[in-house]
Write a protein that binds this DNA or RNA. Structure first.
Lengths: 230, 230
DNA sequence: GAATTTCTGTGCGCTATCGAACTTAGTAGT
DNA sequence: ACTACTAAGTTCGATAGCGCACAGAAATTC
């Protein structure tokens, strides 16, 4: 199995890539670690490798909603291309694993030094914000089962493994629904042998089937991404 | 009554302001005019004056959702600071009136020439995208009546008048609900003497009352804006 | 191995909203 | 003045998801 790299970094010129990698520190992220808080300044940017990060909108303690996922196809902290070192959402580690960490000041400097890095991060930010309207519409118009299937597919892509750990309660916070609503939806997917789970461990059995159970939003967002970032 | 100006332009240095205004053309926008389509390139950016513009997420012909409003506090086309001349959403004129129009190429050049314009538009784009998670959560968790009250307040701010024109059907498309759902919600607000309407003309009678009927999202977004852009 | 905590399954009544239809009331056209 | 149209009011059954509560099952702690 080849080592997992970050696709944004992979796409850079050799020169930029080495400049970036020189400033990066390999860190290992734990599930639940909070990397940035809405409205507040952040100190580090992260290029996920095997880890992935969830972007949550927090309305209050009980009402939360995931607006995006960042895996090794992206970067947490892309708002720095706008010169803003604040995040609009909470960034919390959803999948444990490695990431490359940069300080905000280093990334600021690199964005000036490497035009291709600037271009890449700007494009990524645009893709990320383009997803938000789609996510909103999906959350509003689509049913829990379809949304759950979509979320499982997105996580599967970023987890680089057929199984990952998360409880129904955590999924409920991500989808903005009741825990028992997730149990019912997940039970339906399991009955169809699309997934398998027990006590916080989910296994993906049938991607094709999940894609059918999911709304079109999964493939729509995915093709948006490839169109913009190859 | 003083003439309505654009606040982003007002905040620029004299030099930048005149550079910008030299490239602008005063245009008058009609309700329903479509200024940009999702995914597609746009040719002009707009600084609304007395007009205002709705940003719609289009899931399909029947399912639409407003994600933001741009009045004289903003600009349509802010993604150009990312070097991207595509919009993530559909921009459609919601309030008739004037706007200052710029070509994409002119704005591109101005963003390079005027650092303060670049800073301003970058900040505005950040505020705009910060609103999206809040809007999503609001759409998902809050009731139609509160969302309608919020929308009326936001439109009132940008219409610079106590009455404006829109039908229940159009509001339904904005809120992503049935037309008759809007009728019921609007009827309740009218019964409380907060608004008055008939056949596509809405009058705001009691702002304070509307603020109470609305969710906290109205004031939250407003204070976000002033914090970032003064 | 007993006690406690965490995760999951399930049931029940409730409510906001839906989809669809039909009615009433203004407005505009000729 | 008659017609046609568009906007708004209202009803009705259906339903997805809610809030809440409780119970079983697996893991963890002591």
């Amino acid at each position: 199995m080849p080592p997992i790299t970050n696709k944004l970094i992979d796409g850079l010129s050799e020169k930029s890539r080495s400049l970036v990698l020189n400033r990066c520190k390999l860190v290992s992220l734990e599930v639940g670690e909070i990397l940035c808080e809405p409205e507040q300044r952040f100190l580090y940017a992260y290029f996920p490798l095997s880890s992935f990060i969830s972007l949550l909108a927090l309305l209050n303690a009980r009402q939360t909603l995931e607006m995006g996922l960042i895996g090794n196809e992206g970067i947490l902290g892309s708002t720095l291309v706008l010169g803003v070192d604040r995040s609009a959402m909470q960034g919390v580690v959803q999948g444990a694993g490695d990431a490359l960490r940069l300080t905000v000041t280093d990334l600021r400097q690199l964005l000036q030094e490497c035009p291709d890095l600037h271009r890449t991060v700007a494009n990524y930010l645009f893709v990320l914000m383009s997803q938000l309207p789609r996510s909103s519409a999906c959350i509003h118009f689509h049913h829990i089962k379809a949304r759950l299937a979509r979320w499982l597919l997105m996580s599967h892509d970023r987890a680089h493994a057929d199984h990952f750990n998360i409880t129904h309660q955590d999924i409920a916070n991500i989808l903005g629904v009741r825990r028992s609503g997730v149990t019912v939806a997940a039970g339906a997917l399991q009955k169809r042998h699309l997934i398998n789970y027990s006590r916080g461990e989910i296994e993906i059995l049938d991607r094709k089937g999940l894609e059918e159970a999911s709304c079109e939003c999964y493939s729509a967002v995915k093709s948006d991404y490839t169109q913009m970032l190859g």
